[in-house]
Design a protein around this nucleic acid. Structure first.
Lengths: 267, 267
DNA sequence: TAGTGGTCTAGACCACAAA
DNA sequence: TTGTGGTCTAGACCACTAT
């Protein structure tokens, strides 16, 4: 199955560049496309094929006028056990900045969001748009929608320096107890691409979520789009719901016996 | 930032094609690249830019010699609450086929897998490689590793028609109670690309996982690579699943200090 | 202003699928 | 055999960044 045909040229170039990227550090500048074309005696389009591959994999960034630079390692976003972006990065000791892009306290609800929030037709919602930056680099974009009664009381500025879910919980007076979301890898829509500062061909991980308080009442929905070239993701899920498996698992211990976990998991 | 410059030609072509795709049904054949180039009075490279965008988004498939066809809708893989691929698709009423590609009962453990399984250096493992097909189309590729004592007793044929996790649970005599995994969107390595029948530039969602039984002993690890053009994903996670409304946030890390965000962890 | 990557052209040859 | 998409060439102009 493998190895039959000759490997395309751009893969050779990409392989060489990958080695070069390993030798150079983050933020290093790679040779220009023209220089690479000359060095490998290929056309610029072939070089661009190789760089395109590396860019998709998140190894490099290309910026018109500046050149192609080596990316720092991806950050890790831990989705399970369920934590907010703020809690997650704080617990990893990763500094980040939240930048509010816009807040619209009253607007017609987009149909999809209206359904997530369980609102009747022609409902109004509030919409908060923001981006997160780690080390000065945009990693994700949030578009969050709130029912009118929450939106009216929401001060978007508070979200800039506090956990957004806690701000909402304070407003509502109940903790968020569950979340569900659809996750899809897709080219960024124009507005999201602009917010994330990526080209129209860049793929993002788009999470369309709903948050609920006890009783199942939805209090927030929206879409969070992650730059897949800057983020990877982690999940830890147990069948048994009682104890938190994470607490009992010290990194890569071998044969320790955390007696906490003996519980029956239905099945 | 937005709206300033003229939209590139290939976006216009892509937008038109997107409409056309909506009108045509799944598996329809789109015009050839040359026909599109002629119709829009652009070069073939521009047309390819548009088709490339649609292919990344999973709207079309392109096959040398056949042409460009409209894809059927993506399937949904539900990762949380934790379910196996088999359980998940069965519960959705989606038929699938498992095809064993290879089984190596004894081989040196790759370092990453050895660490996941908590094995000492120079350990041997068994390796099972398979793909899943829905409606005749490959949707994911599994490369599963087992400690030697399990591998020696594993009959790979049984996995073709039964839930793989159940087969292992039967062998081990204990249920799998927890799983964790890293999730990354990245170009498929050569061997995975071959197994998934995609080009070297195609992105996949690569999940590198570990399964554990009670006590925390790992019994299986591996990487499952999903074609992001054919799959989307769903999660439903609760903070507390029982009656008590206030139960507990993540273990004891409840009170995060907002002041921790600004400092620490530079690079 | 100089130099980068983004877009685009008009060709070409090849590997592969289907008739 | 025919026609497709995959790869590749040798140019070109433009938008943007940095100086």
């Amino acid at each position: 199955m493998a190895g039959g045909t000759r490997s395309p040229l751009y893969l050779d170039v990409a392989a060489w560049l990958e080695g070069e990227i390993g030798r150079l550090g983050p933020n290093s500048l790679l040779p220009t496309e023209e220089q690479l074309a000359e060095r490998f005696r290929v056309s610029r389009i072939t070089v661009r094929g190789a760089l395109d591959l590396l860019e998709r994999g998140g190894l490099v960034s290309r910026l018109r006028g500046r050149g192609t630079t080596v990316n720092p390692p991806k950050i890790t976003r831990r989705f399970a056990p369920l934590t907010s972006f703020e809690q997650d990065l704080a617990s990893q000791g990763v500094a980040f900045v939240t930048r509010i892009l816009s807040y619209e306290p009253v607007m017609p609800a987009p149909t999809a969001m209206r359904l997530c929030l369980g609102l009747p037709a022609d409902s109004q919602v509030g919409c908060l748009s923001l981006v997160r930056l780690v080390d000065g680099r945009i990693v994700c974009h949030d578009r969050r929608y709130y029912p009118a009664w929450i939106a009216a009381r929401l001060d978007p500025k508070r979200v800039e320096h506090r956990d957004a879910s806690e701000v909402i919980e304070d407003l509502v007076g109940s903790p968020i107890v569950e979340s569900d979301w659809d996750s899809e890898i897709t080219p960024a829509p124009r507005d999201v691409a602009a917010a994330l500062d990526v080209g129209p061909r860049t793929l993002v991980l788009a999470n369309t979520y709903t948050w609920r308080i006890a009783g199942g009442t939805p209090i927030e929905a929206g879409t969070i789009s992650y730059r897949v070239d800057r983020c990877k993701f982690h999940f830890a899920i147990g069948f048994n719901r009682r104890a938190s498996p994470l607490a009992a698992r010290p990194a890569r211990a071998k044969r320790t016996r955390p007696s906490a976990l003996g519980g029956a998991a239905g099945k």
